[in-house]
């Protein structure tokens, strides 16, 4: 861990009764880095973020944020971070500016600086002209940018976003990510959890977690290269169920997963196996079978890694 680390997590454990939500997680996030947390629902993403925000006490291990230990000084941590939860959580019956002034005041932004900060956030979130609108009347994308604005009023050095883009249209999501990258460029470290695979590719680094464990950590490129052991073929066939069964038994096939209308098949040698597999399916009486070599996406990696971890929890293979 370098001195540049804004977030340092070492062997973090959280238990709720008998249930182990986080099972010894370790990683570090540097200044200005955008780190994505990817994992299925219930993997422990929210629990991890809530611990790092000082909302939950860890059961074991250590975590520090902005150089402060979360267990011993949660209040000090909260002074230095911004947090935006998956649930929209500003006051719908207050106006844009009233909400911002309230949270600014709670965060202790000096009165002299508050007007400037509020104006800055309004501009950044593109809410000019809506300053006096009640928040309840704003559309989803606007609310989301306002919530992000409320979380950075006090200029935190670390920002936590817990599934911030759930339920927002793609265009607003794109705009939201532009904002996050602007913050990263200003040196703010951002830790964001999501279950949108395409969003994960916007992050500098990605941590994949499942069942409270860190499965892999790296840049999107690294993860894709590392996780899919082999080459990838997209196969289009009519009878998906029978096709899967047939493909799983074919020589050279390592994994088969359904992606929409297509099957993604991991094989040892795409060029050699493509025609073999096509012939095999044709032999079963399936017409119109098409195969194509593709590059693995984040979703391929995710399915592959989570599937592997699910089958052998000790992380073999």
């Amino acid at each position: 861990m370098t001195s540049e680390s804004r977030i340092t997590v070492d062997g973090l454990i959280k238990r709720f009764g008998d249930f182990v939500a986080l099972d010894g997680i370790s990683f570090a996030v540097g200044a200005g880095e955008i780190m994505g947390f990817l994992g299925p629902n219930g993997a422990g993403k929210s629990t991890l973020i809530r611990i790092l925000c000082g909302l939950l006490r860890p059961s074991g291990g250590q975590a520090s944020v902005a150089g402060i230990d979360v267990a011993s000084d949660p209040e000090g941590v909260r002074r230095r971070i911004g947090y935006m939860s998956q649930k929209f959580s500003l006051y719908g019956d207050l106006s844009v500016v009233e909400n911002l002034r309230f949270f600014g005041g709670i965060y202790g932004v000096p009165r002299s600086a508050l007007d400037g900060q509020v104006a800055f956030v309004v501009e950044m979130a593109g809410l000019q002209g809506r300053e006096d609108s009640l928040v309840a009347t704003l559309a989803g994308g606007w609310k989301q940018r306002l919530a992000l604005g409320a979380a950075i009023l006090h200029r935190p050095s670390v920002l936590f976003l817990d599934e911030p883009t759930s339920g927002v249209d793609p265009q607003s999501r794109r705009r939201f990510w532009d904002l996050i990258h602007r913050l990263g460029a200003d040196g703010v470290s951002v830790l964001v959890s999501t279950h949108y695979m395409d969003e994960a590719e916007y992050c500098n680094r990605i941590a994949l977690i499942n069942r409270g464990r860190l499965i892999t950590l790296g840049t999107p490129h690294e993860i894709k290269a590392r996780s899919v052991a082999g080459e990838l073929l997209a196969v289009e066939a009519e009878d998906v169920g029978r096709a899967i069964a047939a493909l799983r038994e074919a020589p050279g096939v390592r994994n088969v997963a359904v992606f929409g209308r297509l099957l993604h098949v991991v094989v040892d040698d795409a060029a050699a196996r493509a025609s073999e597999l096509k012939a095999r399916l044709n032999a079963l009486g399936m017409a119109g079978v098409r195969t194509e070599r593709i590059l693995p996406t984040m979703e391929d990696s995710f399915v592959h890694l989570v599937g592997r971890a699910g089958r052998s929890p000790e992380g073999a293979a």
């Binding site: 909302l55 947090y83 939860s85 949270f103 965060y107």
Partner: peptide
Amino acid sequence: VGTLEQILVTP
């Protein structure tokens, strides 16, 4: 509504 959580992550 969730605003309680938002307030509790403040100092």
